[in-house]
Each structure stands twice: as structure tokens, then as C-alpha cells.
Design a protein around this nucleic acid. Structure first.
Lengths: 351, 351
DNA sequence: AATTAGCACTCACACCTCTTGAGTGCCAAA
DNA sequence: TTTGGCACTCAAGAGGTGTGAGTGCTAATT
């Protein structure tokens, strides 16, 4: 299904028009806005063929054409030209991100909100994937009898912690013995190699009665495991209600309903990311359009995600969820810029 | 504006009917559903008077009446009877909350989601107000050169921490000296008495050059201050889209737009709470209806909030935001039950 | 063979009018 | 004070019509 040059031109023109007007585009208006050297009848023939190929569709007989998912796909894959942002746009985004305080999480949040603000869509950020990283330190800090703060430091300087409850009579000194023993044997181990069993054996020489030891270790285990949970922030859900694409309440409801399940979104983005890595596309953006997205209520949406780096080994995703009828090149360049700023800022933090 | 018994009955009947049918209620249908011993004409007279008093209003001439904000107010203040939840409802809520893991934050989240689920509205929870509490411990934990985890332990066992950056060459030993000095002088001090100045003087005898010291102290100060920030969780925003009250997209958009500003909601709830305390109502629920709420887009909503306890001195709020046309007695009893479960569960945690 | 003008046909949408019915206020009688 | 009766109101739905942007197809033109 090779597209000749004119078909490409026509498809591109239709997508562009449809995106900016939200009206099905007909042969006549196409002629008017773009300087085609052929007549509307010829375009009608071209359009009919594009429809046969599955790239366009008609809402009803006497309306114009709109791009199908496949049409959008073709468009983003080979017709798009990613343009540059204007200086003022760049500055606006920069201003929102530069001001953030100095931990990764807040930078991530600023970037997410900048993204939602500038695109007008829902933006999302995922915490870095930590499965690959290893345990670097494990400290326990006595808060009060029966309560300990377990601090897990991972490679790349990521810190996670949690207050856990332990038997009341364990002393700070005993707790120290445990954490030292665990740290000594397990530091340097990849997270996914740490199980409750390895943890238990690691603390054998702490010389604490088993039953109490186990309770502490179990809580520690949970803390470590929970460190690599994927967090996801979504921002700007309400903006979707301003889009004509979701002027039908039912659609909007389905969409927001699904988006309220953080886990589903996180899982899906993770999946995209994994696929992208397989195809070696990891340092660029990834796009999923309409039906390609296997989440209920997102049939009219597109995902555009990209990857940010945290240190040399860790990475996470940031991106947007918008209507599939969107100005892809503009949004892509916005995402790219945010990703760049975010990477810079994170690097600055770890210097 | 004393209401005689019959007027009360009529008002109650109208609110009840309107809440369950979402149709303006007329004199005739009122007679049919409730066993009034008078005729529809009499009711019409009563309704006309209630309207004159500002308790009812008409959407248009030939429709029935609906309660005004003032009508709802009268209703919740003196006509309502808070009924008990059915056992099955109680069990459902309990099941959602009991399962939670053992930190306050997750219990709070479970309670919030239980609340949203059972009421079908937006639920909210605020982190405990910590202004009144005092500093109990301050620890610093060296993560790597230039990076320290500052752990702030407050009264009631609340723990907050943050990774901060410090000059690279400060040693763990030096950091310990600083944190010991600070902890020694400031522990026991109420949070709001701790300023950068008191912090700076407290660390004088740590024997570290001023310029480096100040950087560490500044970061510490920020961590302490940020500990008493009010966090707010909102859950179930999308449920509002299923309510007939927000079937107009514009309303829904305004509502969700405002709710997306966490700070506004938090501030408002805090304000209600403060007023409630003044009036000595603190251990019960508080209701704000319609126009009483000074937030844009919430003209058709009601807030119902209540207070949970954390230890002997701390408290926070939990509640719902729903349409003002809601079954108040049911929702109140749901909130009460959740509040009770939440308090129990928090108490269990701190034992 | 590709392009184009022309024409009959389609169909969502906007706009009208008409009817229906639940509701009202008011008055005069009980 | 209550009630039956009556004229009046008005939102909402049903039905009918016109408009216009769009289409596909065919026959003529390049």
C-alpha cells in the first residue's frame, strides 16, 4: 500500500485540517485551503481510494472524511515534521521547571504540570523503574520503642523509607545489629534478587531470637519491595472536559473513570516502554493511537510518552494522554523540550 | 421565621422527594407519596409560603418546587434524622479499611476510597494538622557525600523526612554534631516556634564554619517547615460525571477544574474546621451547602466533613464533596461510620 | 489514462410549529 | 382554614421542512 506523493499530501492536508477545525473535511474546503493544482473531483477520487485503503473514514454519507486510526498512524510515522517551539514557549516551560526545589520528585511534578499546562491535555509521569538497581545502604532509625524508620538507599542515590512496627522491647542497639548484618550481606545486590529468604539468612549472625527477628525482617522486606513500586502522577484530567472530543458526557466519564485507576495507566505505559525498548526506540518518543490502546474509554485518545534518565542506569517515563485528534508535531516538540529540561534538571541535582 | 409543624413536614417531604427523584416536586405528587391529610390546594398554599420565606424555589412557573440552599440548611439543621447503616454496608466499609497496611497514610487512603465508593461522590482526606505539635527528634543520616536524609520526628510519632544536599566535604561526624546540637536545644519546642534564627542559634556549639553550617541549617529548616504542610487527597472526581446534577458539561468542568487545585480545597476545609472549632462542634460533622461554599464551580455542591484523631493532640479531616441534592442522612451516617473505623484503626496502629 | 465538470442524491442539523401535561395562583364556596 | 374548580403557564417532546456541505458516478475533455 505504497502511497504516491499526492496521496501523502492529501492525507497530510486532511489530518492537519481536521485537527485544527474538528470538522470532517470535504474535497472543496481542501482545495480552498491548500493550493492543490487539481480539481475537487480528482481529490474526491483520491479520498475514495484513501478510504478504501483504510486511512480515512466517513462519519456518514454526506459528511467529509476524517482520518482513521490507521490514517493517524501513517501520519505520525511518515508525514509529520517535528517543528521547533517558539522561544516564548520554551521560556514558559523553562520557568515552570527551573524554579523547583531540589529533589527529583518535585522536579518530576513540575515537569508534569508544565506538560499538562502547555499541551492542554492530561500529563503523566512515572517514577523511575528501580528493578534493575541494587541496594546500597540499609539503615534503621529508632523512633520510639516499637517503632523504627527503615531507610533503603538504592544505587543512583534513590532513597525510600517507611516507619515500621517492631516488638516493643527490642533496643536500638539490637536494631543496629540487625541492620548492619543485613546491609553487610545484601548491599550491592540487585533488588530483584532480594527475597525474604536471602534477607533472613543475611541476618543470622545478628544474634536475636528468631521470632522477633522475623517480624523485623518481614517489615524490612516489605519496605524494600515497596521501594520499586511504580508510582504514577496524572495531572490535568479536568482539561479533557474542555475538548470537543469529549463533549459527550459518556465518553468523558469513561475516560476519567479509567484514568482514575492509576495502576492501569502505569501498567500500560510500562508495557509501551518495554515494547519500545525491544525495538530500540528507547531514546525517542513513543506513540499509541486510538484502538491501539487497550484501555476502556481511551478509544479516542493517544498516548505520547518519552523517557527521562536518572543517573546512568535508571529511567522513567513522562508523557501525555490527549485526544487522538491532536496537533502531533506541536505536542511532540513540547514533550521533547520538557524531557530535555527534565533530564538537565535531574542531572544538575545529582552533581 | 418559626416553622409550624406542618410546614416542617412539607419541607422535609419536598427535600426527600427531590433528592430521590431529581424532579421538581409538585403539590399533587406530594399528596400521593406522603399521607397528608389535607388537599393539594392547601399544600400549594403552604408551598407558596415556604417559597416566600426563601426555603423553596421554582425553576420556572409551571414546574414544581425545589429546595433552596436555605431550605437544605433548615433540613439538615433540624429536620434530619441520622439513621443507622445496614449491617451489610458496615461490613463493606469495614472490609475496605481493615485490610490496610500499617501506616497512618495508607489507612487514611483506604478510608478515603471507602468513602468515595460508598457515597458515590468525591471524598477527601487531609493530613493531620501539625502546627500544634512539637519537635521530638531530629536525625540526619548520611546517604553519600553531599547528601543527607533529614528525619524529623514530631510528637505523636509523626515522621517526616527529606533528602537534602549539603557541602560535599562535610563528614558524617560533623553532620552528627549539627543534628545533635539542634535536637538538644529544639526538641520539645512547638513547630511554630522554630524559625531559622532559633535553628541557627541552636547549632552554634557544633563548631562548624558558619557558611557551611548555614546551608545545612537552611535545608533542615525547610524540611521542618514542610512537615506541617497540609496534604489533601481527593478521590473519585470522575464519579461526579455520573450525577444528573453535573450532566451539563460546563458545570462539570468548572467543578473538576476547581477540585484540581488541591490547595484551594485544603484551605477551604481548614477554614470550615476552624469555624467548627470556634463553635465547639469539633467532634461532630460539619456541613456547607451550595452558595455557602466560596469556591467557584461548587455552587451546586455540599461539603460534609468530620474530624479524625491522631493521638491525643492531633487531628485531621475527612469528608465528601457531593451534589447539594443528596441524601444527607445516609451520607452523614456513612461518614460517621468511616470516621469511627478510621479512629479505631489509627488507635490500633499506635498501640 | 488521468482529470474534470456536472448532476442527482444523501443526510445531519437547524428551525418551526403544535401538542401535551404537570404544575401554578386565585377565587368562591364549605 | 380548607377545598374544589378553573384559567393560565411553560418546558419538553414530536413531527415536518429547508438548507447546505458533502458524496459518487458518468460523460466529456485533455
Amino acid at each position: 500500500m505504497a502511497l504516491d506523493d499526492r496521496k501523502k499530501q492529501v492525507l497530510k492536508a486532511i489530518v492537519d485540517d481536521y485537527v485544527s477545525t474538528y470538522e470532517p473535511v470535504g474535497s472543496k474546503s481542501l482545495i480552498e485551503k491548500h493550493n492543490f493544482t487539481v480539481s475537487s473531483a480528482t481529490l474526491r477520487n483520491e479520498m475514495a481510494e484513501l478510504e478504501k485503503m483504510g486511512l480515512l473514514e466517513k462519519p456518514h454519507t454526506s459528511a467529509g472524511r476524517i482520518p482513521s486510526d490507521k490514517g493517524y498512524r501513517e501520519y505520525v510515522d511518515s508525514l509529520i515534521s517535528v517543528d521547533n517551539l517558539s522561544e516564548s514557549e520554551k521560556e514558559e516551560i523553562s520557568a515552570r521547571i527551573d524554579g523547583s526545589v531540589d529533589d527529583v520528585e518535585s522536579v518530576l511534578k513540575s515537569a508534569t504540570s508544565a506538560l499538562s499546562e502547555t499541551t492542554g491535555f492530561v500529563s503523566l509521569a512515572m517514577s523511575p523503574r528501580l528493578q534493575g538497581s541494587y541496594l546500597s545502604q540499609l539503615k534503621m532509625l529508632m523512633i520510639e520503642p516499637g517503632k523504627v524508620l527503615v531507610v533503603v538507599v538504592l544505587s543512583a542515590g534513590v532513597v525510600k523509607d517507611k516507619v515500621v512496627r517492631i516488638p516493643n522491647f527490642l533496643t536500638g542497639e539490637q536494631i543496629n545489629r540487625i541492620s548492619n548484618a543485613v546491609e553487610k550481606t545484601l548491599s550491592g545486590k540487585p533488588l530483584d534478587e532480594i527475597t525474604f529468604v536471602t534477607l533472613a539468612t543475611s541476618a543470622k549472625d545478628a544474634d536475636i531470637p528468631d521470632s522477633f527477628l522475623n517480624q523485623v525482617l518481614y517489615e524490612t522486606y516489605v519496605t524494600i519491595k515497596q521501594a520499586d513500586r511504580l508510582d504514577v502522577y496524572l495531572e490535568g484530567e479536568h482539561r479533557m472536559l474542555s475538548l470537543p472530543d469529549f463533549s459527550e458526557l459518556g465518553r468523558a466519564r469513561d475516560l476519567l473513570g479509567t484514568l482514575s485507576h492509576d495502576g492501569m495507566v502505569a501498567g500500560y505505559v510500562n508495557e509501551i516502554e518495554a515494547l519500545g525498548r525491544e525495538e530500540g526506540k528507547s531514546d525517542s518518543y513513543m506513540i499509541r493511537i486510538g484502538q491501539e490502546i487497550a484501555l476502556e474509554g481511551l478509544e479516542d485518545c493517544s498516548f505520547i510518552t518519552t523517557t527521562y534518565k536518572l543517573g546512568d542506569t535508571l529511567s522513567g517515563n513522562i508523557g501525555i494522554i490527549g485526544p487522538k485528534r491532536m496537533d502531533y508535531s506541536k505536542v511532540i516538540s513540547q514533550i521533547n523540550f520538557v524531557r530535555k529540561k527534565l533530564n538537565d534538571e535531574i542531572k544538575r541535582l545529582s552533581e
